[in-house]
Simulated assay, not measured.
Amino acid sequence: MFLLLAKWCRPFPGLPQQVAEARYFVAALMEAEGPRMVENAVLIVSELASNAVRHSRSGRKGGWFLVVVVLDDDRVRIEVIDEGGDDRPQLLAANDWEEEGGRGLLLMATCAKDWGVKDRMHGRSVWAELTRAGA
């Protein structure tokens, strides 16, 4: 059963320096969850927000991205909604390891319980879930 305990969302301008602001936002929300949860949540939002600014229309002049954090009884869901782009986020294949960059989603996926991508009418949502301590 999914019992909603808390939900927060905050829009950010689509500027590279706003990724740090998104990290501070999520870290403040996760503080009571313990240092491990803070580290994992910050890593996730950092990757998703960075990708929104770099690889979507959110990084263009006047662009934006939205960070959504949902806590229920046993998990934390972190979602970044951006303005969409031409390429769908995906994990690197093993033969792409020589490419520079592109490992962030893989790193994020290793600490997340689950993650996914959902295309929206005017953008894209990329989300990841973490298991709460004691769940």
Rank of each mutant, 00 (worst) to 15 (best):
F2Q: 12
L4M: 11
K7R: 12
W8S: 11
W8T: 10
G14L: 10
P16N: 06
Q18A: 11
A20S: 10
R23K: 08
Y24R: 07
V26F: 07
A27F: 03
A28G: 07
L29D: 12
M30C: 15
A32W: 12
A32T: 11
E33F: 05
G34E: 06
M37T: 12
E39K: 08
N40G: 05
V42F: 03
V42W: 00
L43M: 11
I44P: 06
S46E: 13
E47L: 01
E47M: 01
E47Y: 02
L48S: 07
L48H: 02
S50I: 02
S50D: 12
N51Q: 09
A52P: 02
A52C: 12
V53P: 00
S56H: 08
S58N: 03
S58W: 00
G59H: 07
G59I: 13
R60C: 12
K61V: 13
G62L: 09
G63I: 13
W64M: 14
F65W: 05
L66Q: 08
L66H: 15
V67P: 07
V67E: 08
V67C: 08
V67Y: 10
V67K: 01
V68P: 01
V68R: 10
D72C: 12
D72I: 14
I78Q: 04
E79Y: 00
D82W: 02
E83I: 00
E83T: 00
G84F: 01
G84S: 12
G85W: 04
G85L: 10
G85S: 11
D86L: 14
D87R: 10
D87V: 05
D87N: 12
Q90M: 13
L91E: 14
L91N: 14
L91Q: 10
L92R: 12
L92G: 15
G102Q: 11
G102H: 13
R103L: 13
L106E: 09
M108Y: 04
C111E: 01
K113Q: 15
D114K: 15
D114Y: 00
D119A: 06
D119I: 07
M121G: 04
M121N: 08
S125G: 05
S125Y: 00
V126N: 00
E129A: 03
T131S: 10
R132N: 09
R132E: 09
R132Y: 06
R132P: 07
A133H: 11
A135T: 09
